[in-house]
Design a protein around this nucleic acid. Sequence first.
DNA 1: GCGCGTATGTTCTCCAGCGCACAGAGGTGC
DNA 2: GCACCTCTGTGCGCTGGAGAACATACGCGC
Lengths: 250, 250
Amino acid sequence: MPARQPAPVNQLLAALPDAEGERLREHLRAVALNSGEILCEPGETIRHIYFPDDSLVALLAPVDGHPALGVALVGKDGMVGLACALGVGDSHMRALVQGSGSALRIDAAAFRRTLQRSPCLHAALQRYADSLMAQIAQTAACNRFHLVEARLARWLLMTRDRIGPDRLHLTHAFLGHMLGVRREGVTQSAQALKQRGLIDYRRGTVVIVDGRGLEAAACSCYAQLGKLQFSSTPARPSPGRAPGNAGNAP
Amino acid sequence: MPARQPAPVNQLLAALPDAEGERLREHLRAVALNSGEILCEPGETIRHIYFPDDSLVALLAPVDGHPALGVALVGKDGMVGLACALGVGDSHMRALVQGSGSALRIDAAAFRRTLQRSPCLHAALQRYADSLMAQIAQTAACNRFHLVEARLARWLLMTRDRIGPDRLHLTHAFLGHMLGVRREGVTQSAQALKQRGLIDYRRGTVVIVDGRGLEAAACSCYAQLGKLQFSSTPARPSPGRAPGNAGNAP
DNA sequence: GCGCGTATGTTCTCCAGCGCACAGAGGTGC
DNA sequence: GCACCTCTGTGCGCTGGAGAACATACGCGC
């Protein structure tokens, strides 16, 4: 079947009025992001802003000894380098490509200049900042209270929601880093989900078999965030709020 | 001894130029906040914005069964109701008063109107949003990796940094809610810190005896955030970055 | 179709923190 | 000074996940 046909385009950009969109697009350039690539390190000055299309970027919080913990996912619903939009030059987090794909990139300086003349973009990014904060806060609580299995299910669903297809390219070790647990813990939880027929996997690929079932296995944080995430960045400037899961029909 | 003498005033407001400050102050009204009071519930529309002076507000992330987890502290360095400043009407978090004291309050609608004519305030709030996000992300990682004792030390230090005096009014049970652990766990960790002469406590009051020692007992997240927190909202527009612990001399 | 690197499976011990139940010990109000 | 309530101390057994050390299995490249 032909994947990636619906031309997944970044929702923040898609929602812009023509004039602003045009102005921004002059500086945007399509780039390919490869899984494992690091776009930004904590403490580093932000040089580029990324608007993912079908790529997926994880935001990681650094901790002394440990490998950094995944606190948020940025896909076509968001952007990487938000701090720059908020007037802060340095990033506080590591931005790591979790899913290969394309994104639109813009130089930080050009972005800042353009942003000053783009009230709609500015407003959208502020709303996005709010939703990202909610996502991070929820993740904080989730990491504290929920078991690995539920958190794994949540992360898989969040990944799928942002890239589209049910086939994800992820290893257990990678997921372990995101969730802040050992690789073995991921393997065990994944096995449990597999045995229940919710997912399948094999050497670096995870397939979501039963999305509804996986949602049931995930912690309540998933439903909680689903609501927030999509209502804050509606693709169309229509009045009503979009329902939680749009475009994820089997 | 006369506490609260140095007239602690909210730093976000103090940094405003006269014109903007004046305009905002017309709508601000001093209110007393009492420990345990809830200023905002998740999902609720934000009605008032608070700029704490010597009061202290904790932001909590809600989770299904559990009591909500503390993800950030807002004192004289910040504001409660940030979502409103970002153009979002509803809060995603619970705002719970952790330390009694005074704050300046403004009606959400009036705040929004004033904000449109206050570029400096607007810029400051965007930077604050960024720093708050960093704080929440760090807390997420901290909760995942660090032991209760270190996290307790961090929370106490963060509390002190925002209210000034070394005497904090907190029960073990309350701290347990903030840290997402049992009250007994707090008791044990607090005992350990007490035996090492770092803190003392007794029936709802914690005293920081050895601040430097407590910093050593806290996890690296404290130092990490100290840098971020205070550099992003400097009280004076002087060039250099403020060092981590300013104004906490005994 | 062979070999090697990477991904996954398995087992064991250890421990921080949970849940529960109850025992003091300060304060407050009458 | 008595009753009462809230805060703190302590002792269980239990378990999710950490750490570590392997065994297997898949698949790419040559």
